[in-house]
Structures are given as C-alpha cells and as structure tokens.
Design a protein around this nucleic acid. Structure first.
Length: 704
DNA sequence: GAGCACTGC
C-alpha cells in the first residue's frame, strides 16, 4: 500500500509555483485489496476515479486550511473522501468529520451508502442529520452527513463548530443561499483575525470545498487571504492559508453535443420535432427533455399526442411523461418504472431532473436552453419567477444526464455560437436573486453585526440588504442599532421560518390563538397542500369549496388540517380531496416541531375556537407590510399599500373573484400579472393597531 | 383562471 500517512514525507506533485495552487499529476496508485471481509466493496471503492487521488487529497488536507476539490459527478468524491479522512485518523479523539449537502435526500442516500461500505449500522459510526431526523450517536458517530442548513443552525449553538475536525462542503457550485452563508462563515472561522486565535487553539480544523470546474477559481479567490492583511507564511504554526485546488475526473460516458444551426423561434415545437427525429433515427434509449415549467410541459405533451394521431410512424412507441415537483408521488413514480419493451420513455421535466433526481436509462437529452429562475426586486420587495436563459454550467449538467448508462447524445436547441460567445458561464448565485430577511436574521443570530460588511462569496446588492433591514426593523425584530430585539428578535431567530411567519406566531400568543396560528405557519412554510390536478381542475375546485372559508386561505387551511386529522384513512382522504398526502404529512411534522420550539420560547398553546378575528389579526401582525386595497370600480385590481404596485388575487385562492376590499397576502407570484398567494381578509384599522410605526405616515394612502 | 427547484430546532 503506497498511501501517504500524515506526518510522513510529501507525495509527488506538480506544482505551478504560484501561491499554492496544485494540480495533480495522474499517478495511478497500485490497486491492492484488503484481505478482510469486505473485499467486494473494497474493489468497488478502488475502481472509483477519486481513489487515485487518495494520497494527494490527504496530503493537501493536512497542509492547507482549505482544499478545493473539483470533481465531476460519478467521481466518488462524496462517498469516498469522508472515508479516506476517517481512515487517516481525522476522526480520532472524539472528533467528527462532517460532509454537507444542499438536499435532504442526498444526505440520506449518501450516508446510507457510506455506512454500507464501512460495514456499520447507519446512525452509529456513520450518521446523518436533516431537519426532523437526527440519526447520529454522540461520542460514536465519526462521519456525519448533514444539510448545510442544519450546519448553520449548529453554528448558532457552537459558532466554532468545535466537534468537527474536517468540514466538507459538497456541491458548492450550486451556490445556494445556505452554502454561501456557510462559506462566508467558515472563512471567518478559519481565517479572520479574531479567529486566528481559534486556529491556534484548534489547528486541526480543515475545510474541503467540493465544486464543479467552472466555479473553482471563484472559490480559490474567495478563500485566498489577501497578502496585505496577513503575516507572512511560516511565522505561525499550522496549515497554509492559501487553498489548494485538486481536480478529479468523473466517470460519465461521453455525450455527443448537437447544436441547431439557426436560432429556434419556438422551442416547444423544436422539442417535439427533435423527439420525433430521435425516435425515427436513433437506437432505443429514453429521452429527457428540459423545459421551463408545467405549462411548457403540457403543451409539448399535447403536441406529441396530436402527432401520434396524425402520424403514427414517427411517434410510435413514444411514452411521454411529465415531471415537476407539484406532481403527486405516484405520478412521479411513473418516471422510475422500467420502460416497457418496444417503448421509448420521453420524460419532459423542469429543472428538478438537473440536480434533484437522477434518471437511469436516459440516453438522449434535449435542452431548451431555458429555465424559470427566481429574481428579486428590492424596490418593490417582490420575488418573481422569470423564464431566463440557463448558464453554461447548467447546460453541461443537463447534457451530462445523457451519459450515465452508456454514451449518449445531447441536442441543444441553441446555436454553438450562442453557447460559446453569449451564454453566461455561471448562474447568478441565489443570494443575489432573493429576499434576504431570513439570511439577515441568521447572521444576526450568529452575532455578526456588520451585515453590510460581511465577506460573502457573492455579495448581495446594498439595496437588497437595506430592504431586509427595513423589513426586520418594521417587524420590531431589529432595533434602531440593527441589533436583535429582546425577546422578539431572539425568539424569531430560534424559529426555522420566514421572519414574517415567526412574528405571526409570536403575536398569536397574545391574541390567544397560537394553536390555530401554528397550524397556519406549518402550511405556509411548505409549497402547497393541493396537488396539481391535470384535467380535473373543476373537480378540484369543487373539493376546495368544501373547505373554503369566507375569511380567506389561512382559515381554509385550518379546515383542511382538521379534516386531515379527522380522516380515518388519510391517504385516501387526501386523494379524494385533491390534497397532497406527502405535503400534509410534512405539515404535521413541521407543526410538531414548531409546537416544541414555541413551548421552549414560553408561548402558551391556546385555541381561540371559532374566533377567526383573532387569527386574522395575528396574520396581520406578521404580514402587515403585504396589505392591499381593492381599487374602486376595478375588476379585481388591488394596489399594495406600501408601493402602490398593481396586484391580483391568485386564481388558486378561495378569495379569487370574491375580491374583498382589504387583504394581506403571504407572497406574490409574478408571471404575466402579479398574483397574491394565500390571501386573508382584514379590517384596515388593524394595520395601524399592529404596526403603527409602519403605517403612521401612510394614512393618506389608506384613506379608510 | 394558474404554480422552477431546494431548505431550516
């Protein structure tokens, strides 16, 4: 065995001589298998591309505070690197190796795999933590997988993350808000002047950032300390502060890329004709199509079905299947059933298949070049979903989905010139496209006072920051000095919710309706309780009417929840009422969690029985900034009180076409119009009652 | 008359 062990001589490298960036030579390690019981698993592990770099990875981690590992999918880095670290002794002496993932499902899947490879029970030596599920054993767990959101929460208790020896941030290229917060915090922990003290106290803390090629340089620059601010290398003991970069190839099959010669004017029609072309000319293999949303997907399926009627030859054997998050579990499961003999599955998907779901059997990918992306306008404080061109990084990710089982083909419905010269290299980090109230609260709770000066991988706009501070100030979560108020601010930071929802819960304590409001809070913090009923909208509307409350959606949710609890067979009951059973189970789970936290915060759980005015007042106390008034003599046009934006009640709301004079909404979805989602009627006098500081200067605008 | 995708003590 030629593995390098910490403390011995340096292994062979190619160095570029520039500030510590190290690119690895591809020296193959000799393959030797252990003679113990897990020979088979050992062999499999050794066949992974990352295995060749084991020695180098351990060397770099030993000698650099931060190691950036660039690896394509299939390299095995996620499952292997934590094991290498453990084998090299990083988990000795009660220390823990952490590996974060952006998604819960990935955490569960990866930890199960690693436990199996190590021949241990999941939850013991290898464990995982996600919201609601802690499968770790204190003092026993040595390798721990967790979502990056959970690690941020852990930092609120233990800002220096003292129990960890190595923290691996996986999938950092996705640049989710949580990942970016973590990167900013970890840089602070491992490098800043204050924490240099900590580095001396625990010189063993190491970071591994795992990222796709395209983002590696960004990560390097972010973690490379400015030379001016730091003492010269060698004056302090411990690892080098300059990050190391190591590149690991993947194990995907080759994918041949096809471009269109001329830009297409209608990508849905192009998708359909490309599917027919593949079906006519290419050998068997499933097709995965990336479109922007449900509407695109349904249009494309309709066109395919029309084609099947008029031209049986080209479209014979095609099995079109939609895939997007709003589908029920059973509809999504159709995607994973084996393709029937002589058939060709055509999966028409949103971005969900880009990262969150892996589909086996896909050989052909069709990339429309677009996706729906979230954007935030700090002036109007409105987040919207906009169809926008994807980045090169996304395009590569999409085409890679064709090469998982054998060499594949990807048809890009844009020109090569566009890809090379116009397509942006990377997407805009989520941090720069979002409302930041939750982010600001989290940083404040971590004791970071200078939010505007925080060192982000991608700093958000000052306007967005200032807007978030304003909103938190108006909610009395921050005081005049932008510090957390006591107790409100600290309580809000404890609750894993949007601060407006948290404020609503705190208000309900005084209004005597916390029992109802906690249910509402749980429903508001998931996507939707309703399934997306294709072709049966009428039936769903009728089902909704059975729960509908004149007061609005929030009160309707209380009726839905009550019905769910009272039902004998909840899954059938949900199906009958066009409700998403998975979502309802999640509501129950979140509600339990909120109940526990509320109890700890000293909120007494109290029901207001039929007093829906208390419930509406509590909602107003959290969402007063989202108050709207119906324009007189208009057909359902509302104006926001704050910004006089023109908005409409969303057709999914029980108040659609009812158009009460005064409402508050939870959020806006901005498509062709700006629609208010989750709307409740209010009495405008409550606005000045619950938020006098916010409304005292707006009396004229309100004129009630 | 309409909903990209994730996530959190």
């Amino acid at each position: 065995m030629a593995f390098w062990k910490p403390g011995t001589e340096k292994p062979r490298f190619e160095e570029d001589g520039e500030g510590g960036i190290v690119f690895m030579s591809n020296n193959l390690a000799s393959s030797s298998s252990s003679s113990y019981g897990y020979a088979n698993i050992e062999k499999q592990r050794q066949r992974l591309p990352v295995y060749k770099y084991r020695t180098e990875i351990l060397y770099l981690v030993e000698n650099h505070a931060t190691t950036i590992i660039v690896g394509e999918t299939g390299s095995g880095k996620t499952t292997q690197i934590p094991q290498y670290l453990k084998e090299a002794g990083w988990a000795e002496g009660g220390r823990v190796i952490a590996c974060t993932q952006p998604r819960r499902l990935a955490v569960q899947a990866v930890s199960a795999r690693v436990a199996e490879e190590m021949g241990v029970n999941l939850g013991e030596e290898v464990g995982y933590t996600i919201r609601f599920e802690d499968h770790t054993t204190s003092g026993v767990t040595k390798v721990k997988f967790l979502t990056d959101g959970v690690l941020i929460r852990e930092m609120m208790e233990d800002p220096l993350l003292t129990k960890y020896s190595v923290i691996m941030i996986d999938e950092a290229h996705e640049r989710s808000i949580s990942t970016d917060i973590l990167l900013g915090l970890l840089k602070k922990v491992s490098q800043s002047n204050i924490v240099l003290v900590i580095q001396r106290r625990r010189p063993e803390l190491r970071l591994i950032i795992s990222s796709a090629t395209i983002e590696a340089k960004t990560m390097f620059n972010f973690f490379n300390p400015s030379k001016k601010r730091h003492a010269p290398e060698g004056s302090a003991p411990g690892p080098k502060l300059e990050p190391a970069i190591l590149s690991v190839e993947g194990r995907g099959f080759s994918v041949k890329i096809h471009y269109v010669e001329e830009p297409v004017s209608d990508y849905i029609r192009s998708v359909v004709s490309t599917i027919l072309l593949i079906n006519e000319r290419e050998p068997p293999g499933d097709v995965l199509v990336f479109l922007t949303g449900q509407e695109d997907i349904e249009t494309a399926i309709k066109l395919l079905e029309e084609e099947a009627h008029s031209n049986q030859k080209n479209s014979s054997g095609l099995l079109p299947l939609p895939l997007y998050s709003g589908l029920s579990r059973s509809e999504q499961d159709l995607i994973f059933t084996p393709t029937p003999r002589g058939k060709r599955k055509v999966i028409l998907s949103t971005n969900i298949a880009e990262t969150s779901l892996t589909l086996e059997g896909v050989v052909y990918v069709i990339d429309s070049g677009f996706s729906k992306q979230k954007f935030y306008n700090p002036i109007s404080d409105i987040e919207s979903l906009v169809v926008a061109p994807i980045s090169k990084a996304s395009a590569r990710q999409r085409s890679g989905r064709a090469g998982r089982v054998r060499p594949g083909k990807c048809y890009r419905l844009y020109t090569e010139d566009y890809f090379l010269n116009q397509m942006p290299g990377e997407g805009i980090p989520e941090m720069q496209r979002s409302n930041l109230v939750s982010t600001v609260i989290q940083l404040k709770a971590l004791g970071i006072d200078n939010i505007l000066g925080f060192d982000w991988p991608a700093p958000p706009s000052p306007q967005a920051m200032i807007r978030a501070l304003e909103v938190l100030y108006s909610l009395q979560i921050l005081d005049d000095d932008a510090k957390l108020t006591s107790p409100t601010g600290f309580q809000v930071a404890e609750l894993p919710l949007d601060p407006m929802i948290s404020k609503m819960i705190l208000a309900s304590s005084e209004l005597g309706c916390s029992d109802e409001i906690i249910t509402i809070a749980a429903v508001l913090s998931i996507q939707s309780v309703w399934i997306i009923a294709r072709g049966v909208q009428k039936e769903q509307d009728e089902a909704k009417l059975r729960f509908a409350a004149a007061e609005g959606d929030h009160v309707t949710f209380l009726n839905v929840y009550k019905g769910f609890l009272d039902s004998k067979k909840p899954s059938q009951w949900c199906y009958k009422n066009f409700l998403n059973y998975q979502s309802m189970k999640k509501v129950v789970e979140i509600r339990d969690q909120l109940k526990r936290i509320a109890r700890r915060l000293g909120i007494t759980l109290k029901s207001c029985d039929r007093d829906m005015e208390a419930v509406r007042k509590a909602v107003t106390a959290g969402f007063f900034a989202n108050a709207c008034r119906l324009e007189p003599h208009s057909n359902g046009v509302y104006k926001t009180i704050r910004g006089s934006e023109e908005v409409y009640i969303h057709p999914s709301s029980v108040l659609f076409r009812v158009n009460p004079k005064w409402v508050v909404y939870q959020s806006i979805v901005s498509t062709e119009r700006q629609y208010m989602r989750n709307v409740v009627t209010i009495n405008p006098s409550w606005l000045t009652e619950v938020a006098p500081h916010f409304y005292q200067n707006r009396q004229n605008a309100m004129s009630f």
